[in-house]
Nucleic acid binder design. Structure first.
Length: 274
DNA sequence: TCTGGGGTCCTAGGACCC
DNA sequence: TCTGGGGTCCTAGGACCC
């Protein structure tokens, strides 16, 4: 099951209340961003998935004042596709039996992970609908998209998805970035921005109890080309001084030929502090 | 639409080791 | 010696998600 409401209405407090409601029905709630979540209600004592969905929709309306759209399906893939079919206020159920029929007519872009680029590549192969994708040869998909991605496309086009609902993921990275209203090449301004972003990132690391080994600087110029520079330390750190020095060093090594549109910092290779 | 901010995953290629 | 192959770690960039 998947719930979501229009993101323009989303802010943290609303998001927390939304998630709290879902957790009353099952501990198996997987957040996807602020405004969307998967629930596994196969073991829930609160009724059939459809009943639960209807009740949660009513509660979100009453307690938060927002409409939610929800899809019910035998797996996450089909639940998500179902929820997409009835934005912004519906409830759609896809059952195993009618999955193939429903998928067949949909464009490939409805599939998880198929964006503009992949859609275009598929179209070049003569594939526009999920049904056409389902009848494509696995070998052809693998040679076009690689082993992993080819297999995933092949399975997803058939509505197959075994991925479990996972309530908690360890973060892989955290960071902050800022887009300038007016692009700048003023190094003082950029340094001040970067320092603030580093401070915020380190603040979050300490609050959540993580240290990082890799520090990456992200820069985007006026013409929208993005550059990243990364540096990996011997030992993980959550020290403002260490991370700031690394960030500054990478910034200084960058030859500023165009104005900057965006500055960002991201830390990865995280380790939980005990 | 001239494009916000937070993320994840994948790939290619280089360095280095055995 | 110049001939590898495999594994691991790392960087940089791209595609994608909400």
């Amino acid at each position: 099951m998947r719930f979501s409401f229009p993101w323009t209405f989303t802010y943290r407090a609303v998001s927390r209340r939304f998630k709290a409601i879902l957790k009353e029905y099952t501990p198996l709630v997987e957040s996807v961003g602020l405004d969307e979540a998967f629930m596994d209600v196969t073991q829930s004592p609160h009724g059939f998935p459809e009943q639960i969905a209807r009740e949660i929709k009513r509660r979100i309306k009453r307690e938060i004042g927002l409409t939610a759209f929800v899809g019910v399906g035998p797996n996450k893939l089909l639940a998500k596709i179902a929820s997409d079919l009835n934005k912004p206020d519906g409830l759609t159920v896809i059952r195993d039996n009618d999955a193939a029929k429903i998928l067949a007519e949909l464009p490939t872009s409805k599939l998880w992970g198929v964006g503009k680029k992949t859609e275009k590549r598929l179209r070049k192969l003569g594939i526009e609908t999920i049904g056409q994708l389902a009848s494509a040869l696995l070998d052809d998909l693998i040679s076009a998209f690689g082993e992993k991605w080819g297999m995933a496309l092949h399975e997803h086009a058939r509505g197959m998805d075994e991925s479990p609902v996972i309530p908690f993921h360890e973060p892989k990275s955290m960071g902050r970035e800022l887009t300038y209203q007016r692009d700048t090449a003023n190094l003082d301004v950029i340094k001040r921005t970067l320092f603030r972003l580093v401070e915020q990132t380190v603040g979050e690391m300490n609050r959540r109890g993580y240290r990082a080994r890799t520090i990456a600087l992200k820069l985007r110029t006026s013409d929208f080309t993005t550059t990243t520079r990364a540096d990996t330390l011997q030992e993980p750190t959550a020290s403002l001084k260490t991370i700031w020095q690394k960030a500054l060093k990478m910034l200084s090594a960058y030859s500023m030929e165009k104005k900057l549109h965006l500055v960002g910092i991201r830390v990865s290779n995280l380790e939980k502090v005990r």
